[in-house]
Nucleic acid binder design. Structure first.
Length: 590
DNA sequence: GCGGATCAG
DNA sequence: ATGGCTGATCCGC
């Protein structure tokens, strides 16, 4: 990154960094880059072949076994010592049990956690009434206003906050104060047990902080991403994310590149996203491996029941059911089905779940799970999806209202580009950009804070944590500029009501697929497909599942292609499950 | 939409 | 006897 005066807004540098990285790519041909990457990846266990996972797993097993065998009682003090200092040794329960046969496992007590969590939130509310709770034990709050009103520094407020939390709950906590949430989270980890760390809202300070920061510290960069970046590209710190921007552009999607570069610049979100609604609900269970069909079905019934119960508690009805399997050899599979109606009852869930399962058997399994998604949004109502969409359309009265989360903030104070934001959020997919998403920047007088706390209580409330960060007075969103390069987002819910005709007797007028006149059935199916597609598109204009729609819209050409292929090949093809759901043909039911 | 995978708490 | 479970997201198809 070149010269930047303090007056620079980070996003300007971001844009520069991005275009530089891109420009760096232009002179180079992709093959060459890929060759370089390939060279770099030699010695990395990551890109070698598909066997890597297997090898990795085998090695891990061996390590664990060896570890377990080596451990004796004399190791115990070591771990006890570690615990005393709050170091959490990652230790599987069975090893712990082997080490310490008398070990007492304290059962979880969520009522208690919720109670204490609520107490802490009461404190947070006094600092920021709109704070973001990310879990029972973590929250982000914007303390900008609080600081300004009282003429306090971030450091003072953090100390006061921790103190208040301690007095009112008896729990200690750790706090990080930083210009945005991404950084606040990192900061909250630095002085972990019962401490705080303040990163000034100062361009230089942020860049210095970032320059030596290991990438793994960043939320969103996990074990796998770290390995890839490290082994293949030699990226260890956030600063290097910028330096190797061109490679990132070559290797990763736009979205990911976007995210990586913004991390390299220390950018993060500062908005207060709309309350997120649950999108799926699931239940799964691990058991000792078995291939016994009746037994598996029994277990499946149990899981269906708990899922159904959970759904009833929350008043949820869903129409996409996903079966998750883990084989005895630890291979994980999922099989899903989307229905035309919303279901909730244990019987119905089981009906479809067992169809999915039976299609996979025989198989020896160690885990089964069921997930329900695609909820009906008006709770406890009638059964037809269409009713849902119409109803919610009438209620919301605004299609864009369904582009739920993460956009509201852009209206709040982003004076300038309002229309751009709006437009882009309505026609770009929120889903994709949710976690690697927009990089908003605080104005220089902003301050926000992250906080994390850990319980000192002995009964297992251990390790509750909390993070805070802030809202903004000023938001600049960057991605539009970049995203708009990529052009094709136009899709009208076109009302091309024409049935497909066969140009020259064999070319589909809509998609161009070629199909000889003798393929009568196939042609009929093909026409049906386009018809259904049309209907679906028309409907989806009003549908509340905006995200889904946009996704499919964005990828429309491929999606269609695939749908066609599937349709042609699937009836006899192995994995396709013939449950009523596939609404490619509108008339098919059961 | 589906399926495989990653990540976080 | 790979920690397990829940939920979310991404990517390619």
């Amino acid at each position: 990154m070149g010269t930047t005066s303090d007056g620079d807004r980070p996003w300007q540098s971001y844009h520069t960094a991005y275009t530089n990285a891109k420009a760096g790519m232009e002179g180079v041909d992709k093959e060459k880059v890929q060759r370089i990457i390939y060279e770099m990846s030699k010695g990395s266990k990551y890109f070698e072949n598909e066997k890597r996972k297997e090898a990795y797993i085998r090695q891990k097993v061996e390590n664990l076994r060896a570890q377990c065998a080596k451990l004796t009682d004399k190791d115990m003090p070591h771990f006890q010592e570690a615990r005393k200092f709050g170091v959490r040794a990652a230790m599987p329960g069975f090893i712990a049990h082997k080490l310490c046969p008398d070990l007492v496992f304290v059962p979880t007590n969520f009522e208690k956690y919720t109670y204490y969590s609520e107490l802490t939130r009461k404190v947070f509310r006094r600092y920021d009434s709109d704070f973001i709770a990310t879990s029972l034990d973590e929250a982000y709050l914007n303390i900008t206003e609080y600081c300004n009103e009282r003429g306090l520094s971030g450091e003072e407020v953090a100390a006061e906050l921790r103190n208040n939390v301690y007095e009112e709950t008896g729990l200690t906590c750790s706090v990080g104060v930083a210009p945005n949430r991404l950084l606040a989270k990192v900061c909250s980890d630095i002085n972990k047990p019962n401490g705080q760390y303040i990163l000034p809202n100062d361009r230089k300070a942020v860049m210095t902080f970032i320059s030596s920061l290991p990438i793994r510290k960043i939320g969103g960069i996990g074990k796998v991403t770290e390995t890839i970046l490290k082994d293949v590209l030699g990226i260890n710190t956030c600063e290097e994310l910028l330096q190797k921007g061109a490679f990132l552009c070559a290797l990763f999607s736009h979205c990911s590149t976007d995210f990586f570069l913004s991390v390299g610049l220390g950018l993060g979100r500062t908005d207060t996203p709309e309350h997120k609604l649950r999108k799926s609900i699931s239940s799964e269970r691990t058991f000792s491996s078995t291939g016994d069909e009746p037994l598996l079905l029994q277990k499946l019934a149990d899981i269906a029941e708990t899922l159904s119960n959970d759904m009833q508690k929350e008043c949820i009805w869903g129409r996409t059911l996903t079966l998750k399997l883990k084989t005895a050899s630890f291979e994980v599979r999922t099989r899903a089905v989307s229905l035309q109606k919303f279901i909730q009852s244990k019987e119905e869930i089981l009906t479809y779940a067992s169809k999915l399962l039976k299609a996979e058997l025989p198989l020896s399994l160690r885990l089964m799970g069921l997930r329900m998604s695609q909820f009906r949004d008006d709770k406890c109502g009638p059964l037809d999806p269409r009713q849902k969409t119409l109803a919610s359309f009438v209620v919301s009265g605004d299609v864009t209202a369904s582009a739920t989360f993460s956009d509201k903030h852009q209206i709040c104070d982003a004076q300038t580009d309002l229309s751009v934001h709006r437009e882009s959020s309505a026609s770009n997919d929120d889903k994709i950009s949710l976690s690697y998403e927009k990089n908003d920047v605080l104005a220089s007088d902003q301050l926000s804070c992250g906080l994390r706390y850990a319980s000192t209580s002995a009964d297992g409330i251990e390790n509750m944590g909390n993070e805070c960060s802030g809202k903004c007075d000023y938001v600049e969103t960057e991605n539009e500029m970049i995203r708009n390069f990529s052009g094709h987002k136009t899709i009208a819910a076109s009302s091309q009501k024409t049935e497909p005709s066969w140009v020259d007797g064999y070319i589909c007028s809509i998609c161009g697929i070629e199909m000889p006149p003798s393929f009568i059935e196939e042609r009929q199916e093909h026409s049906d497909y386009h018809l259904a597609e049309m209907l679906q598109e028309e409907e989806s204009v009003y549908v509340t599942e905006h995200l889904t729609q946009e996704r499919s819209v964005r990828k429309a050409p491929q999606a269609k292609e695939n749908a066609r292929k599937k349709q042609k090949t699937s009836p006899k093809g192995g994995k396709h499950i013939p449950i009523d759901a596939f609404f490619i043909k509108g008339k098919k039911s059961l």
